[in-house]
Nucleic acid binder design. Structure first.
Lengths: 189, 189
DNA sequence: CGATAGATTGAGCAACCTCAAAATTGGTGG
DNA sequence: CCACCAATTTTGAGGTTGCTCAATCTATCG
């Protein structure tokens, strides 16, 4: 594998779209990326949120079957698909990343299977805390209410109401535009 | 990879359980297997249904994080995890299987994100038709209503009511204990 | 033939969605 | 710095869907 330049993209940039031929693999270095899909009826479903160090997708050929969009200004590396099979170290990395992603997709399905809106959203916050926590222990949620709704299978209004309720109950504190402090104990109940 | 004997297991056999140390990989030869998870509260969530030719899991070490149970009498092969890395052919197979599984998990999440019960269940039948169709074009559903409910995030009663309604509307015909003929066109609407 | 697990059907209700309006935020330019 | 605009979020009221609870029906197996 050769040396790869770190590229930059602004918030809102579409990194790739469904239907485009696959060219490169992307490894996120900083910032956050959202992966999503569009149903036949235009309904959007958020598949996953990507954190630094993770690969965006695992398709080495064919066309993309989902969309990737930067939630913040990001830094990332492009990796040529030809490099993927040659390097045994990279193969091992690829395998681990796929395992991780399978686990997360499973956790996501489990979240969506939960019946109550409160359980779904609490589970989302707990999952997010494990991966998107900043240096000071605060949770960074650089996504809109709509995107949270599309990840949890709820409406934006339901998400908004639950956040408001939890703020009143001191289970959730907003400490910045996108920063929260979460009482995981309280939310788990 | 050496020669592996084909093993057999009866309907209802637990192939592995969450928490057990991973030993072997399993490739299904005939029959159907259900993968599922148990929430902290005992709620069961069906992750996937496995068809012949597919691997059950992709964990090479550590402990299982889900359960696998035979839905029918099955035949399968056990593969030693040590063989996985050596053989390049098997590595490629493993990679393809993981890609397939990621796609299916994604499709599952998309299904669960749909808002109406009818859409979720119709999507399940359409997905199942693509993978679990028998030699004569009939859909084999060797799972209980409860298992379908746990896969679609619905209750058993809702599943039962929708099946009954679709049978009345001739969108679904039951031709055997576990066999159906599906009018995919009609269900997609 | 009885026993047991699974499936069906019905009635009532609560949770969440829908629709609508107001409030807040962030960005832009004067 | 302030005014204005667009986008997002919040809040409210009402309606529907699907869940809950409960009883009946069916199939399978000893």
């Amino acid at each position: 594998m050769g040396v790869h330049a770190v590229k930059t993209a602004g918030k809102g940039t579409a990194l790739y779209s469904a239907g485009e031929p696959v060219g490169k693999l992307y490894k996120l270095c900083s910032g956050a990326v959202m992966l999503f899909d569009l149903g036949a009826d235009g309904r959007r479903c958020v598949i996953d949120f990507i954190a630094p160090g993770e690969l965006l997708h695992f398709d080495l050929n064919g066309v993309f079957d989902h969309y990737a969009e930067a939630l913040t200004t990001i830094e990332y590396i492009e990796i040529d698909v030809a490099d993927a099979f040659g390097d045994p170290d990279f193969s091992a990395f690829l395998f681990e990343q796929m395992q991780d992603r399978l686990r997360r997709e499973r956790a996501h399905a489990l979240l969506l299977g939960r019946n109550s809106a409160a359980e779904r959203l609490a589970e989302f916050l707990i999952q997010a805390s494990a991966r998107l926590t900043g240096p000071m222990g605060e949770l960074e949620l650089p996504m809109t209410r709509q995107q949270i709704a599309d990840y949890t299978g709820l409406t934006i209004e339901t998400v908004s109401r639950l956040f408001a309720k939890w703020k009143r109950d001191r289970k959730l504190q907003q400490v910045g535009r996108y920063s929260y402090v979460v009482d995981q104990e309280a939310l788990a109940a």
